[in-house]
Design a protein around this nucleic acid. Structure first.
Ligand code: SF4
Ligand code: SF4
Lengths: 159, 159
DNA sequence: TCAAATAGCACGAAATCCGTGCGGATTGCT
DNA sequence: AGCAATCCGCACGGATTTCGTGCTATTTGA
């Protein structure tokens, strides 16, 4: 199916929120999962799990303890949609054989030697992938977040 | 997940086979599911199910009874990957809300009003969709089929 | 009449994804 | 020291989707 998972959507929302926070004065400060979850009706616990994955992928930096949380490790225009998807869904695939390639049991399809669509589909995937690599977090954020979510905490840091 | 379903892969293989058959002399003749399944290690029964869907979508024409089967309804360069995916997976979506849009229980996400990534993601989907619309069955077929499977019956097409 | 083939529907098995429940480790504040 | 807030790691049950198959009916040519 050509559809992002909920995890990826939650991750993107969180990243946009982080980007927003960084751009509205609170640069460098860590934003907690709780704060993010308070802004959107998202399963807090799952959101935390997603942030952890993003931390492992080194897209965000984490800080433990009180006043801990997450913050972007790079500038919003240096983080691409492709990276986020790769971090949360693990596989830039489009055909089943590509997904299988990354596991011990390779070649589970059985018709790879004679598959007439394997190679062409790979090219299509490259196209999709390129599209995502050209979509930065900044371009995701500036369309709505800075305009809609911004006003809620516009002064400098939400009291 | 960004991956085509097995059904779609099977459908594409079948369509490529049909295109191949049409281009190598047997234009107009109907090709049975049995014949296609004999060329690739694919669950015959499921392949039949897929072909039925393609027939409903009017991408192929079917003929019942003896000597029946399927044949392309248009030229290979007039059938796009986007159409095939739409016929077999039903939904050109990328975010959950788009998938939900097509069912009675709309707005199951709950955060659509404040979602910061909804609109931007729609644009990404448009890009992917455009990519698939620009990928014709001919471009899928000519890369491998005409070169690899072609030799088996190459009489006069394929200079 | 018979055999081959598609049409239609529905079902159980398998895989994937969603969401949550633990317990543990850090950190700052009192 | 004690405590509360926060991230970390793992693992599980339930929901959803997809895969593959079974059965019957209908059509068509020999
Ligand atoms: S070999 Fe062909 S059919 Fe098998 S998974 Fe790869 S693309 Fe799909
Ligand atoms: S509203 Fe946002 S989070 Fe909800 S499904 Fe649509 S894109 Fe995903």
């Amino acid at each position: 199916m050509i559809q992002l998972t909920k995890r990826t959507e939650y991750g993107l929302i969180a990243l946009v929120h982080l980007a927003d926070a960084a751009l509205t004065g609170r640069d460098g400060a860590f934003v907690s999962v709780r704060e993010i979850a308070e802004h959107y009706p998202v399963p807090k616990r799952l959101l935390a799990e997603v942030l952890k994955d993003l931390a492992r992928a080194e897209l965000v930096e984490s800080a433990r303890g009180k006043d801990g949380g997450y913050t972007l490790r790079r500038q919003p225009d240096q983080i691409t949609l492709a990276e986020v998807v790769a971090a949360l869904e693990g596989r830039p695939s489009i055909s089943s054989c590509e997904t299988a390639e990354r596991s011990p049991s390779s070649s589970n399809c059985g018709l790879e030697p004679v598959c007439p669509i394997r190679s062409p589909l790979h090219r299509v995937r490259e196209g999709i992938w390129g599209l995502m690599e050209r979509t930065t977090l900044r371009s995701l954020a500036q369309t709505s977040s800075l305009v809609q979510a911004g006003p809620l905490l516009q002064p400098k840091a939400l009291t």
